Simulated assay, not measured.
Amino acid sequence: MIRHSADTPAGPVRVTAAGGQGRPLLLIHGWGGQGAQWTALLPALAERFQVLVADLPGGPDAPLSGAVSMERLGQGVATLLRQAKLREVVIVGHSMGGPVMVEAALAAPDRISGLLGLDTLADRMFYGGSSAAEIAMRRTAFAADLVRQTRAMIFAIAALGTPEPVKEAICASVLRARPEDLLALRDALFAWRCGERLPRLAVPLRLLNSAEVTAAHARDPLPSLARVPQTVYGTGHFPQIESPDRLLPALLAELDQFGID
């Protein structure tokens, strides 16, 4: 199995080749996640693409080694694409992976031909940019009981019909990460400003979001997303884990919009 790695001040970004031929398709996980979250989709995606799976620093098996930001993580992805001599890459970024893929495209527009956000970017509370005071307040509240807060959040954003063992498994995986890393990643995510970064993009962007995130955007729209195509896949924040069979056709339909053969 081929692996690539690129150092960042926050720690190494790692990418593993998961099989397949054709255009490169890079999958980037979200907050507290890991590349294994995409496992259920890999065989079907590998029938059409050269599939690559990222592991960002700060996850269960990759502790942070320095200060983290969405920009640093994205620049690490960009460096890795250059080192691996990959071109015409389409990136799917889930949740926090959305800002990371945007930053990668800003750093290496010549290597990337399309961005597909999965349940990301369209909720102002997470992606609109927060003040230092707001970030500090959120950190204090979350850190007061990180385990309980993490579990409550994951159970709240999972689909109602998701079996309890699946939600418990997601919680257990995320909570394997170091508490200080989870807090640092949250701070970095809340500091990132969608409205300042998206206008600089030179590659196409599409969003495949849950009904919940779509509703949040309808209540408080981000102007920078006004012309970004947005499709609803259903409910639940972790569709690649909760309902991969239902997600797959919607995912493939969106990837088709980038002209991938």
Rank of each mutant, 00 (worst) to 15 (best):
L106M: 11
T8C: 12
L41Q: 10
A62I: 06
G195D: 15
D187F: 01
Q50A: 15
L116A: 00
V213R: 05
L41W: 12
R72S: 15
H4R: 08
G195Y: 04
S131R: 07
I91C: 13
T16P: 15
Q50E: 15
G236E: 06
L27Y: 08
E168A: 10
A215Y: 03
P179V: 10
R23D: 14
I157C: 08
Q257G: 07
V166W: 02
P239V: 00
P244T: 01
G19K: 10
C171H: 02
P221N: 05
V68P: 14
R219W: 04
F155N: 09
F126L: 04
A169F: 07
A144T: 10
A62R: 15
L160P: 06
P204S: 12
A218T: 06
P109M: 05
T8D: 11
M137S: 12
R14N: 15
V174P: 02
G74A: 06
S95P: 10
L183I: 05
G97P: 13
S131K: 07
Y233R: 09
H29K: 09
D61C: 12
A226I: 05
I112A: 08
Q34L: 04
A40D: 15
P249Q: 01
L115N: 06
V77P: 12
P221K: 07
S5W: 03
L118Q: 01
A44P: 15
T140L: 10
F155A: 12
A184P: 14
P63L: 06
G195K: 04
G98W: 02
A104S: 14
A84H: 13
F126V: 03
A144P: 12
L146F: 08
F155Q: 10
F142E: 09
T231I: 00
E196F: 03
R219S: 11
E254L: 00
V174W: 04
P57N: 12
H4K: 09
P244F: 01
P199K: 03
P24E: 11
R14Y: 06
R82S: 14
S65C: 13
A226T: 06
A253T: 02
Q257K: 12
L86A: 14
L80E: 07
L118V: 00
A40I: 00
T79P: 13
L80G: 14
A44R: 15
V13Q: 13
I2H: 09
S243D: 03
I91F: 01
P12Q: 09
A62M: 09
L205F: 05
N209H: 10
A108T: 06
A17K: 11
A253I: 00
V102W: 04
L86R: 14
E47N: 13
P199I: 03
V213G: 03
A143L: 07
G33K: 07
D123R: 12
L121D: 03
Q240C: 08
P163A: 05
A216I: 01
Y233A: 02
S113W: 03
I260S: 11
I170Q: 04
F258N: 05
D119C: 05
S173H: 05
L45W: 11
G32S: 05
A108E: 08
V147Y: 02
R138S: 08
G97W: 00
C194M: 09
R246Q: 03
L146N: 12
G66M: 08
P12H: 06
L25I: 13
R111I: 01
